[in-house]
Design a protein around this nucleic acid. Structure first.
Lengths: 205, 205
DNA sequence: TTGCATTATTGAACGATGTTTATTTGATTT
DNA sequence: AAATCAAATAAACATCGTTCAATAATGCAA
């Protein structure tokens, strides 16, 4: 029965079309300014159709949020070849920062906006696949660092969360436009210089 | 002329009434769920009147955002008596975290939401009074730490931003509900344990 | 091929939102 | 008492996410 399969394929087709349109508009204009009607206009369908493919706006943006995590993970895995765990950690941190600064809108969706979380709660999702993957990536590295004498007396999880928090804080103050507003003498490379100050401290053995 | 002065007083009175109502609703229900109509209902006036006292919703929430910074600054100034700058820094950090966890809704307004920033941009405000005050408070302490041999080779501003970013990251991952979603073995006191891990590193001299 | 059943899609509607405007109310001054 | 002026309102506008009955298009059986 090729018919049923074609049906499924066509159902998939429109779902993909909606998602592609949502991604384009979202990357260009951000979350608030990407409305269901905008997406519908863009694909030349009526607004109602979207609700046959997604439960609500949250589900659409949860899907885009997942894509973001796949891309971030790929970036952070690129320094996998660095043998020294502390060196690898710093390289991953730089990749993280670069990803956030290059993709501020999707980063906000991944780590700040409510939409994807709301969807997960409504869905009773037990795990945050994307976030967990990043956390595990860092934790594995932290464990190796601990074995080499770093982070003495601290648990791997608390240390991992601390490192993730620092990276997140560095970029999210920028993305929320706060860092631009702080009165500074040296505005040049603030985030990277701050990451250097962080790296200096990481080295305590 | 007592009349004109009474007029001014009454004008002030309604402005305060709007702000009080906005604060109550906002603290109870958050930003999105505090609408102009809700505020108007609450003070038993028509929605339009609010626009005679505030330019838009952003201005109201900018005012509440300023109040938050006054309270945060007061909290962070309480360990001023601690002579050792590194000890004082850690105490200020704890106060910062405690403030954010105790007042998550206003914290989000202060450091994440667009509304107050939008108002400042529209207003061509040259300085971010609240944020600057917190930054200066930390920077002064960082300078003293540097004189004692900490943060070798790093600038005060980059180091201050790094510390602020870590504090902000620790609490904002919690407030944006991300930390709850991470798969952890030890969920107890995650934020405080992570702050301990951070403190351990700060001590590098 | 025709008729029926099923599915896909639409368009209008609902109750919200922030904001603007002309109009009315009410108090103060002449 | 009449004229003036500011305060306050009610209604409207353009949005938003979402729902639902009605319609169009399709697949299947006779």
């Amino acid at each position: 029965m090729g018919v049923a399969e074609r049906k499924i394929r066509e159902k998939e087709r429109l779902r993909t079309l909606i998602l592609d349109s949502a991604r384009t508009l979202f990357f260009r204009y951000g979350y608030e300014k990407t409305s269901i009607r905008n997406i519908a206009d863009n694909i030349e369908y009526s607004p109602g159709i979207i609700y046959h493919y997604f439960r609500d706006k949250n589900e659409i943006f949860h899907a885009l949020h997942n894509e973001g995590f796949i891309n971030l993970k790929a970036e952070m895995e690129s320094p996998a070849a660095i043998a020294d765990p502390m060196g690898r950690m710093k390289a991953m941190g730089k990749k993280y920062i670069q990803f956030a600064l290059d993709n501020p809108i999707v980063y906000e969706l991944m780590f700040t906006l409510e939409a994807p979380v709301e969807h997960m709660i409504q869905d009773k999702a037990q795990t945050w696949t994307g976030g967990d993957a990043i956390f595990e990536l860092l934790k594995k590295c932290v464990r190796e660092c601990i074995m080499m004498g770093y982070f003495r007396g601290q648990t791997a999880e608390a240390t991992t969360y601390m490192i993730l928090a620092t990276l997140h804080g560095l970029v999210s103050l920028k993305i929320s436009k706060r860092s631009n507003l702080i009165n500074l003498n040296e505005k040049e490379n603030l985030i990277m210089n701050s990451f250097m100050a962080f790296s200096y401290m990481l080295d305590r053995q």
